[in-house]
């Protein structure tokens, strides 16, 4: 089995290093890997990112992340990514990575994702250029997520567990509690469709602070909203069984 710690939306500011460090202190004793579901910083400033990087670098477990909309606000994504990478954090965007865990392999495919809405109330690539760009952005991110998941599926050495890591939500279930009028800004069904086409053991996302924790994709894959305000603690730990025991 593997234990996965996950949290999103920690929104680190300049003075938050101690608070975050205390929360994450025992994570390496409780889990094999830490997955971060974006919105690591308050507004995507490199100085905020450095505060977080200094907390993450000493942790004795692999850390994998996607960025969130807050991490884009200062428009310094390359620098934010470099600071995290230098601290040993793997930053995914339409890409995948693998982590060895006691002779087995965890595969993680990630993207920030984007909005657009859900079945029956979703954006279309039609009309004004800005509207087409908005809708197209999610289409492209979902396609990249699907390719990343397939790259894990098609690898010479198959992975034992496959997780999709997002910031925006792939389903409406985990948005319950948010104002329905903003669902289209909180996620897109295209992300769920991408995961359902390939398959995964778990989908993690953040972004919806007032949402709920648990849901399923239309194909029945478990989804967890790990936005910190939803969790009421520093992170959640999930245990995935070994594939042979899961199949039994």
């Amino acid at each position: 089995m593997i234990r996965i710690a996950a949290v999103g939306d920690i929104h680190v500011g300049y003075d938050d290093g101690d608070r975050i460090a205390q929360g994450l202190a025992p994570v390496a004793d409780q889990a094999d890997v830490l997955l971060l579901a974006g919105d690591l910083t308050r507004c995507g400033e490199p100085a905020e990112t450095k505060v977080l990087a200094d907390v993450l670098a000493p942790l004795d477990l692999p850390v994998i992340t996607v960025l969130g909309n807050h991490d884009h606000h200062a428009e310094q994504v390359d620098e934010v990514t470099r600071i995290l990478t230098d601290a040993g954090v793997e930053v995914l965007e339409g890409t995948a990575t693998t982590v060895p865990v006691r002779g087995r392999t965890l595969g993680v495919a990630g993207t920030k994702g984007f909005g657009g809405g859900f079945v029956g109330a979703s954006a279309s690539e039609f009309g004004e250029p800005v509207m087409k760009r908005f809708a197209r952005c999610t289409v492209e991110m979902a396609a990249a997520l699907e390719r990343a998941l397939r790259s894990l599926d098609d690898a010479e050495t198959p992975v034992d567990w496959q997780v999709a890591l997002l910031h925006y939500s792939p389903i409406e279930d985990t948005l319950r509690g948010e104002h329905p009028g903003i669902y289209a800004f909180l996620g897109s069904y295209l992300l769920a469709e991408a995961v359902d086409r390939v398959g995964a053991d778990l989908v993690l996302h953040g972004h919806a602070h007032a949402g709920t924790e648990r849901g399923l994709t239309p194909a029945g894959i478990k989804v967890r909203n790990v936005a910190q305000p939803v969790l009421d603690c520093a992170y959640r730990v999930f245990e995935l069984p070994d594939p042979e025991s899961a199949a039994a």
């Binding site: 929360g23 409780q30 053991d201 305000p229 603690c233 992170y235 730990v237 995935l240």
Partner: peptide
Amino acid sequence: LCVAPTTPPPAGQVEQL
């Protein structure tokens, strides 16, 4: 506004999937 708790989960608090 509530302040989001950032204390670690208790040891053994694990969701089995």
